[in-house]
Design a protein around this nucleic acid. Sequence first.
DNA 1: GGCGCCACATACACTGGTGTATGTTGCCTA
DNA 2: TAGGCAACATACACCAGTGTATGTGGCGCC
Lengths: 180, 180
Amino acid sequence: MDSPPLTPADWLNMAVKELKERGHGALKAQPLAKALNVTRGSFYHHFDNLESFHAKVIAHWSEISSGQIIRTAREMAPPEQALDDLLQKTFQSGEALERAVRAWSTVDPAVAAAVAKVDVARIGVAENILIDGGVPQSAAKSRAQLMYWAAIGRLMMPFPAENVLSQAEITELARLMLRP
Amino acid sequence: MDSPPLTPADWLNMAVKELKERGHGALKAQPLAKALNVTRGSFYHHFDNLESFHAKVIAHWSEISSGQIIRTAREMAPPEQALDDLLQKTFQSGEALERAVRAWSTVDPAVAAAVAKVDVARIGVAENILIDGGVPQSAAKSRAQLMYWAAIGRLMMPFPAENVLSQAEITELARLMLRP
DNA sequence: GGCGCCACATACACTGGTGTATGTTGCCTA
DNA sequence: TAGGCAACATACACCAGTGTATGTGGCGCC
């Protein structure tokens, strides 16, 4: 029943999974090793210590998130639709992960820095969509910020699944935000 | 140099302080005892165990938050001003605490339940302000939700102090939200 | 066919936490 | 003035984690 040897990527993927399901408190060598059916020896073979491992985990998350941003930006159909996508789809399957990372960022400055970068990138995408939709540049930034904050705020509700706006409400909001 | 004997309230106040400054990971008997210059014996004299202590901490936070809500609601001057207050003042000195509690809520269902209740109450206040300001009931709820999510989202940014809207922008937003 | 390295396993010393059981000290009170 | 209780302190057994040092099995390769 022995499985193929593990790579650092395997550890990072498991880390992301545990982060999503149990929060950053689960990012420890011993529990992760158990989840991968190996001992901590493997962990300390691939990584120097917990701190550097955490750094690689958050870097991995940044890449994942950046990938999502690129894809979202590429689907820039009509601005109204792009806005819907950005508001809704960005945090669809990634909600739990996003919540966990943001909670983590409140106690780890390195994570906070990474999250801040991703935030800037995402808000930039939203801003460009608004500008493409005819919103004056001066107003676009603060509106994009507002929208982004609302999206983050929603998923930081204790039960984000119960905190939803109807499609009609989202469309109404998008229309409001695209007003010149 | 001996100080007066501690009460459970002293422990709860210290807990809130540590929660605010270091996050919920600091809510442990040993570190708190050290911060209060006593030993864990005192902790286990006043509380059964960590779990019940945590329950009292979050209950204490709920009362604090409810107090703020009452005060905010009582200052219901003109709706525009009340909205400013709700958006800005609620999380002024309490930003770090709010962040910590919300991060905590992502890993503790009991905390999540308490936070959810406070959220409902706060959104209710915002909704009433909007209704007082002439917004139709049907639209008031979703707009109040949006505003609340944005407020929460802002303070969950890694550096909330750098994520601010100018007073002009807030006023503009309040005006927008109060549109019938 | 022995060499070396990769991917672990094992063992050890250590830290920082929990909960419990049992002192100890001062004050309040009958 | 003796008892009793509140507010601790002390000591113990235990657990879950870290990091490090060293052992080991297989496989690639010349």
